[in-house]
Structures are given as structure tokens and as C-alpha cells.
């Protein structure tokens, strides 16, 4: 992935939209991915999120179910 990929348009949600999105669903229906560092995750994370620091995402991408909608934070 090159530098330009960081500037790809990515759809975003406000926290309110994310909350609304998750409220209507079973936690197994979507991926909620915390891409920060483990220390940050330990201090506080959204309930039900999985920790995959962005630096590890490339090799751990298989852990994310591609058939489900995904929210990163």
C-alpha cells in the first residue's frame, strides 16, 4: 500500500451514526476494529471491539470477516 492510499476516499460515520448502526444489530453482524496501540486499548475501548493495531493490519487482515460491514476507529 502506497502513500496515496492514505488519501483514498473512505466513508466515515459520526459516533452517533456508529452508535445507531450498532444498536440495530447483533454484535456478530459487524466488525468493530480498534486499530490503536495495545496501551490505548487497555485504557479504554468500545465494548466488543477487537484490537488490531494498524501496523499489524496487513498480516492480520484475515481475522476480519470480509462479508460483514466494518467500522474502524
Amino acid at each position: 500500500m502506497g502513500v496515496l492510499d492514505y488519501f483514498r476516499p473512505v466513508r466515515s460515520m459520526t459516533t452517533e451514526e456508529a452508535r445507531e448502526f450498532m444498536r440495530g444489530k447483533d454484535p456478530g453482524d459487524y466488525n468493530l476494529v480498534d486499530v490503536r496501540q495495545p496501551k490505548e486499548y487497555e485504557r479504554g475501548h468500545l465494548a466488543g471491539s477487537v484490537l488490531i493495531p494498524v501496523g499489524e493490519l496487513g498480516r492480520r487482515i484475515g481475522e476480519i470477516d470480509a462479508s460483514k460491514p466494518t467500522i474502524t476507529y
Binding site: 492510499d5 466513508r11 459520526t14 494498524v54 487482515i61 460491514p69 466494518t70
Partner: peptide, 13 residues
């Protein structure tokens, strides 16, 4: 990255 890997519905909060 996830969108690049082919995931369809990806959002950032």
C-alpha cells in the same frame, strides 16, 4: 487498507 483488500462496507468513525 481494508477497502483496498476488497472489503465492501468499511467505515471509519
Amino acid at each position: 487498507m481494508l477497502a483496498d483488500a476488497g472489503l465492501e462496507h468499511v467505515f471509519t468513525m
